[in-house]
Design a protein around this nucleic acid. Structure first.
Ligand SMILES: NC(=O)c1ccc[n+]([C@@H]2O[C@H](COP(=O)([O-])OP(=O)(O)OC[C@H]3O[C@@H](n4cnc5c(N)ncnc54)[C@H](O)[C@@H]3O)[C@@H](O)[C@H]2O)c1
Ligand SMILES: NC(=O)c1ccc[n+]([C@@H]2O[C@H](COP(=O)([O-])OP(=O)(O)OC[C@H]3O[C@@H](n4cnc5c(N)ncnc54)[C@H](O)[C@@H]3O)[C@@H](O)[C@H]2O)c1
Lengths: 235, 235
DNA sequence: CCCACTTTGTGCATCGGTTCACAAAGGGAC
DNA sequence: GTCCCTTTGTGAACCGATGCACAAAGTGGG
């Protein structure tokens, strides 16, 4: 029987769901390696660290791929999620800014594993340009447009200093890129239609610090309520 | 006049707000450097890339620190947000797993700038132990408990391979740590009360790929509807 | 001192996302 | 074929977050 496309398919998958699909995919891959043929929403939910009702609702947005009384076919679900995420094609990624972080990313194996391929490394520093890292030549940022076109790059990872990030982002966007992963601690401004995701270590640590402070406050009997502004600063 | 503590203070700041405070703080620091004394919610919102009503509501959770008709005092607001986030104290951070990524993190300057201090580097590989990185000796993972206690570490950054992450997390938690930033692509299971934040490159790329696919699909006239499962796989 | 102007702080409607709970679907035993 | 058991898919209630819109508060000018 040809499976009916649920009306949910095509008509926008919720953003929160999209963000969890890679998690399910990772859990499923682990299960496939261990030779499991089917999995229940309950088991998969546990492996992915989410609630099983949420998992079922998420999957229902892709279509009706489970079998009541049985669960989901592991391989089939891997294929469906991969396809939905666009991982059945391979994506050429360029890393701009080959410093501490850029090098770590370039050398990172887990990158390649799932549809992503580092296709170019670019930097502005003549000292760095020409270096061979993870089998790739570091090219000069002046070549940006050419490299993007020639290698079919569609995702750019920004690992330059904060001061250069906006300027590089502008060039990258002008070159036709619409997907950017930004590691620099700045709010990038880009035109409508360009997707930016950011990874910000410092923000993550600050959020942890906030909660950590709450925990220790609670133990030591609450924060020092008095101290609001140590030396009264005239507003 | 002593400022009244709003009832919102102390009684839980929304998680979404907490996640944005570091953003406001960063924008404010930039403004302070440029010598601005006060800022309106509108200007600050633009600098932080959010809606101004949201910004005002966020700040209102900390207290009533603005002046109608004028805006917010930059220095004062920096202090209030810093205090709320717990950045007026300094936090000792340990990095476990000193490979590609761990090294980049250890060498990262922006780390120290705001209340965080890398206090220890730990690894299991005898080849790596003893290396001097960013002025710190890499210590053996066996010393974990001692190092955490002696240096007053309260936040641990996990940069080990995925396979080791859960095991290391267990030890770290047993040593009394309740805040972990995890770079390994695994769902860590930890007891109630332990906060985990994760940074997952691969997930970010997959989310970008999803949207990128949608964009190109739209241009090429929608996805190939027929192909649902290339070679019918028997369920 | 009053008035016009600016900008905050928030009540309220709305929205997206989560969770519960259950009817419907399918499998397997006999 | 019938019955029982398991598990999906989803309606509906709920919850937190967002954004509009405006009254209240404060500034500065005359
Ligand atoms: N290293 C980390 O662990 C870490 C963690 C979090 C965030 N970050 C952020 O990631 C970014 C990179 O960090 P890093 O430690 O690798 O810095 P880095 O200084 O080691 O490397 C930056 C690289 O970008 C290059 N560059 C500068 N301007 C450029 C331009 N216009 N075009 C192309 N390349 C340019 C430099 O030549 C250098 O090689 C920074 O914004 C940093 O704040 C780094
Ligand atoms: N490098 C990247 O750009 C990148 C990006 C995203 C995610 N990650 C993830 O970050 C983690 C680290 O990546 P990497 O590239 O630095 O890997 P790596 O192999 O270069 O480094 C891992 C380090 O952890 C150490 N280690 C192993 N077991 C340990 C244990 N039980 N206790 C303490 N240390 C132990 C190893 O000796 C090694 O030095 C991995 O989980 C990886 O998937 C890395």
């Amino acid at each position: 029987m040809i499976r009916r496309l649920s009306q949910a398919r095509e008509r926008g998958i919720p953003e929160a769901t999209v963000a969890r699909l890679p998690l399910y995919l990772r859990a499923l891959n682990g299960m496939a390696e261990r030779g499991l043929a089917t999995v229940s929403s309950e088991d998969l939910a546990v492996a992915a660290g989410v609630n099983s009702a949420k998992l079922r609702k998420d999957l229902s947005h892709l279509g009706s791929y489970g079998t009541r009384g049985v669960g989901y076919d592991v391989e089939y679900l891997i294929y469906q999620i991969s396809r939905e995420l666009g991982l059945t094609q391979d994506w050429a990624v360029a890393i701009v800014g080959v410093g501490n972080l850029g090098r770590a990313l370039a050398n990172y194996g887990g990158f390649v594993s799932r549809g992503f391929r580092v296709a170019a490394l670019l930097d502005a520093d003549p000292e760095v340009v020409g270096d061979r890292i993870a089998g790739l030549n570091v090219e000069h940022i002046d070549e940006l447009e050419t490299v993007i076109r020639r290698r079919g790059v569609s995702i750019v990872v920004l690992a330059t200093p904060a001061a250069a990030a906006q300027q590089v982002a502008d060039r990258v966007v002008a070159a036709g890129i619409t997907s950017i992963l930004n590691f620099a601690p700045v709010v990038l401004s880009v035109p409508e239609g360009v997707d930016i995701r950011k990874v910000d270590l410092s923000i993550e640590l600050q959020i942890l610090a906030f909660h950590e402070q709450r925990k220790t406050d609670r133990m030591t009997g609450g924060p020092a309520m008095a101290e609001e502004w140590p030396e009264a600063v005239d507003l």
